[in-house]
Design a binder for these strands. Structure first.
Length: 177
DNA sequence: ATTTACCGTGCTT
DNA sequence: AAGCACGGTAAAT
């Protein structure tokens, strides 16, 4: 899978950017897929245009499910085990720290879990556990960047931007595969 | 069982 | 430009 990274803060990343978006079916719910000219840059679960607009201030949003249909179908088909085969490039917009965290998440194998502390250690910032927590939460491309495979150290407790139920459904689906 | 310290980000002032 | 609230974990109280 091709991964493009762009350094940008949340407030600036939407400027001069046109996003084509559409809502499609996925095993754990509806996904909102948004593509820039470069590739897949946002994926939300059970959300609407407002959530997209909030995350990409300044961006021009064009709804066209025909354009996003192909990418969405591919994601649904490749999930959970073969997402790295995605033909659409993945475009990551974030601060240098967030990019480090997200790229680390990409290395987590389907079906396995890690903790925020382990990720912090891997990127060489062992004390920045909390920062890792917030970076994971700000991930722009859920499912493809497996933010749901990161759990609290004291197992069990689940915290997820799209709702704990979605996180559990994703993990369950990957476990089966 | 509660509190403290640690870090990066985004929102508010 | 400065302050504040978040978020996960280990260590100290």
């Amino acid at each position: 899978m091709k991964v493009i990274t762009r350094t940008a803060s949340k407030t600036l990343r939407g400027r001069h950017l046109t996003l084509v978006w559409g809502i499609h079916d996925f095993p754990v719910g509806k996904i909102l897929v948004a593509l820039s000219a470069e590739g897949l840059c946002w994926l939300g679960i059970n959300c609407d245009r407002a959530a997209l607009a909030k995350n990409w201030p300044g961006a021009e949003l064009v709804e066209d499910a025909n354009v996003t249909k192909k990418a969405a179908a591919e994601i649904a088909k490749l999930w959970p085990a073969k997402l790295d085969k995605l033909s659409v490039p993945l475009v990551l917009y974030g601060t240098p720290f967030q990019l480090k965290v997200w790229k680390e998440l990409l290395k987590i194998k389907s079906g396995s879990l890690t903790t925020y502390a382990a990720v912090a250690k891997k990127i060489g910032e062992p004390k920045a556990v909390r920062a890792v927590g917030s970076a994971v939460g700000k991930n722009t491309v859920s499912i493809v960047v497996p933010c749901h495979r990161v759990v609290n150290k004291d197992s069990g407790r689940v915290n997820y931007g799209w709702g704990p139920a979605v996180k559990l459904a994703l993990l369950k689906g990957e476990k089966a595969a």
